[in-house]
Amino acid sequence: MNFFLKKLLIVVPTLYIAWTVVFVTLNIIPGDPVNLMLGGRPASDEVRENVRKNLGLDKPVIERYGSFLINATKGDLGKSYLTRQPVTKMIKENMWPTIELSIGGLIFGVFFGVLFGVFAGTKPNSIRDTISMIIALCGISLPSFWIGMMLIYIFGTTLGWVPIVGDGFVSLILPSISVGLFFAGGMARLTRSSLVDVLNQDYIRTARSKGISKYNIILKHSLRNAMIPPVTLLGIQFGLLITGAVITEEVFARPGLGQLLLQAILAKDIPLVQALVVYMTAVYIFLNLIVDFTYGIIDPRIRLERKNQ
């Protein structure tokens, strides 16, 4: 556990650097937030001065930076210029649909990715390998808006199997497939190559010499050893999803963080953008920790190495 304490200690400076970069960039970008807030409406200097005071923009940069950091650690990331709501509240509201979609995509992606990967990897250079890999390549390369639209057209409109919009589990199916296909494609390719590699290892030959069945060789001896590269990919891709899948949200008219970020950027709502970036860096760091932790579960060598440090 010592290892993870160390990792957690590194989280603090990482977040600090990320937040500072966000703050500095958004302050360098030209454009007066007051003008943006007023949305181009004419206003007297007095009004402008008032708004500025309200937003706390009259204070020197260093002070604003300081209070931004202090408030951020307290979990207060300010109010949106546009809606005047606390940004954390806005993020919270949009977080759940995104998490739902991400987990849906994750389940779909991992299930089909590993399935196709194992299917292909256990018989490399065969017809089934080639076909599986072509499907995986399609999953990676077909744009998700097109997949989303096709899914809606086929399963929603023509066949009428699933609702296109609405709440609940059923309405999550199509969007999950839409984001999960990309996921599945990458997982399948990586699982395959990693599995091919593992199946050529000496210890697999040993297992075969013990008379272990093909099924058990793959399940007990190969998969676990082959899982490190796919898990790394999983962490990265899940991070992408959980910070918002703009296009899928747009196509399926779902709320979510992707949508929120898009709107915030277009409206130059600086506190909201700032808060979203803070959220995303934190999520990435957290996911990385989980991936690191998973390595230890998969491979006892990594676990023991950490213990010895």
Partner: peptide, 14 residues
Amino acid sequence: SMVFQEPMTCLNPT
């Protein structure tokens, strides 16, 4: 049964 040459790689590391 069989005993192989490379003891370093012949056993499953996990």
